[in-house]
């Protein structure tokens, strides 16, 4: 199990950051992602593994209206 933005998310073996975003339907282009407090560089999401039990923070940089 992962914790993504304080909410649980079922873990799939071999998950990457990109997989987490896809599973949560986080489609917005401008994201800032931390895995266990470590900032993940944009452009590396599909190569960055997420370990089971990790805490993932995904901030949407979107301002709206």
């Amino acid at each position: 199990m992962l914790i993504v933005n304080e909410e649980p998310l079922e873990y799939d073996e071999g998950m990457t950051v990109a997989d987490v975003l896809k599973k949560r339907n986080y489609i917005w282009r401008m994201l800032a992602v931390w895995v266990n407090g470590q900032f993940v560089q944009r452009g590396t999401y599909d190569k960055t593994p997420v370990p089971d039990g990790a805490e993932v923070k995904v901030i949407h940089q979107i301002a709206g209206g």
């Binding site: 933005n5 304080e6 909410e7 986080y26 901030i59 949407h60 979107i62 301002a63 709206g64 209206g65």
Partner: peptide, 13 residues
């Protein structure tokens, strides 16, 4: 306009 900060990012719980 606080929807994402509040609802998605969960930054202001």
């Amino acid at each position: 306009w606080l929807i994402f900060m509040d609802m998605v990012n969960n930054q202001i719980p």
